[in-house]
Amino acid sequence: MKSDSPVSDQTDHPGEPVAITAAGALPWRVNKDNLEVLLIHRPRYDDWSWPKGKLDAGETVPECAVREVEEEIGLTATLGVPLPPIHYHVSAGLKVVHYWAVEVNGSPLRPDGKEVDSVMWCAPEKAASLLSNPSDVDPLNHLVDAHHNKELATWPLVIVRHAKAKPRSSWSKAEGERPLAATGIRQAQAVKRLLQAWRPLRVLSSPWLRCVATIAPYAKAVDAKVKLADALTEHRHGRSPRKTAQVTESLFDKQRAVAVCTHRPALPTVLAQLAVHMNSQLRALLPSSDPYLTPGEIIVCQVAHGSKNKIVSVEQFKPFDD
């Protein structure tokens, strides 16, 4: 899934351009060993649905999903596994809504009262019978399947390519001190906003300036713990790709959300190590040719809890580029 490209429905409406893009989430919890999901009631439409809303100017699809969940039910969400998007026609044309699973761990919910006047926790079967838009059942079915397969409770592992740096040709000092270009400084701010959709509080970075400067605005915003790893630099990777792979493998040790910032030459080694932990269908989603990621672009892997490091989803996003 790439947030920078036009989305068209390849199922019921093949090739038709999307007129409206929206995003939201299916909040879920396990209550007394039973899976429950949260429906919202919108008085304007007198319907039951999931928290969602249209993309604002200057935001990515994941940012939209997090914002809408917070605005409608007062929940500061971190995105879990992606769920199938739904497509349907409105007066403006074809509308796509992208969904993610969002775990609710006892956090208080505060419906905004205007757009959402009530919420309801219920079993998936009841939710399916109450949903006003039949298309909304599709992401629900996927969520239930993920729960049954022990692939719903996850933590995110995020790979970031550093933002655009000043050209090598115009830099005569040490390579590790080459800074971000003006475009890269703006990209770093966009990366800060995008990463907050998953909110990893651990950050591992190459110590070279362009990586540190890419991740610093995000780390400062959320007070993340930053650790520097020489094995993630271009130089060390060139000498010992095996050590870069070992650092990548160590990301799984703590089973907690983490973001990693590195360089283009190191990306094939990093991605190959992640591929060990996923099935062939997910491996096919990984970029396989140079440059792998554009400056500031990210890959988000969701890792199932208690799964011996099994990656269950792969997504790819560019930060908003002005």
Rank of each mutant, 00 (worst) to 15 (best):
S8T: 15
D9V: 09
T11V: 15
T11D: 01
T11K: 15
G15W: 02
P17A: 07
A19F: 01
I20L: 13
A23H: 00
A23P: 14
K32C: 13
L35N: 04
V37D: 06
L38D: 08
L39A: 02
Y45D: 09
D46Q: 15
W48F: 10
W48G: 08
W50R: 10
K52Q: 15
K54Y: 07
E72M: 14
I73P: 14
G80Y: 04
V81E: 08
I86R: 06
H87T: 02
V90Q: 03
S91R: 01
S91D: 14
G93T: 11
H98N: 11
Y99Q: 12
V102Q: 08
G106H: 13
P108T: 14
K114Q: 05
K126N: 15
A128W: 13
L131E: 08
S132W: 01
N133T: 05
V137W: 02
H142Y: 13
L143E: 04
V144Y: 07
D145W: 09
A146F: 00
A146K: 09
H147N: 14
N149H: 11
W155Y: 14
V160H: 06
R161Q: 12
R161I: 12
S170T: 15
S170M: 13
W171P: 03
E175W: 05
E175H: 07
E177I: 00
T183I: 15
T183A: 11
G184M: 10
G184P: 11
I185L: 06
A197P: 10
R199M: 11
L201K: 05
R202F: 10
P217D: 11
Y218D: 02
A219I: 04
V222S: 01
D223Q: 01
D223A: 15
D223I: 11
A229T: 02
D230W: 14
A231D: 14
T233Y: 05
P241C: 01
Q246M: 07
S250P: 10
K254V: 09
Q255V: 06
R256H: 07
V260I: 11
C261E: 04
R264M: 13
P265G: 01
A266P: 00
A266F: 06
V270Q: 04
Q273G: 10
L274N: 00
M278C: 02
M278P: 07
N279M: 00
Q281A: 13
S288T: 06
P291S: 07
E297W: 10
I299M: 11
K310N: 03
V314Q: 02
K318I: 01
K318C: 15
P319C: 00
F320R: 01
D321R: 12
